[in-house]
């Protein structure tokens, strides 16, 4: 966990203080919104994934 904290600090410093010009890195370095959107299902990689509790409701 220490390494992760270290990395975050380092990453912010490198990206924000040294004025990195890659936009995506800047947004990443600022960190995410603390409100997170959650889903019970998600389509990605040509699969439809469902959370476990949702999956238990489905029938064969």
């Amino acid at each position: 966990m220490n390494i992760i904290r270290h990395f975050l600090k380092w990453f912010k410093q490198i990206v924000l203080e040294k004025d990195c010009d890659v936009d995506e890195l800047k947004w990443l370095a600022r960190g995410p919104n603390f409100d997170v959107i959650t889903w019970s299902g998600y389509d990605i990689n040509k699969f439809s994934f469902y959370i476990n509790t949702e999956d238990q409701k489905s029938t064969m």
């Binding site: 990443l28 995410p32 919104n33 997170v36 959650t38 889903w39 998600y42 990605i44």
Partner: peptide, 22 residues
Amino acid sequence: GVIEEIWEVDYVKFKVPVFKCK
């Protein structure tokens, strides 16, 4: 494993979907 939660982490300009798994 099994997916417990699906989050879309919001970085304002883009969102990153992640699976919280057991």
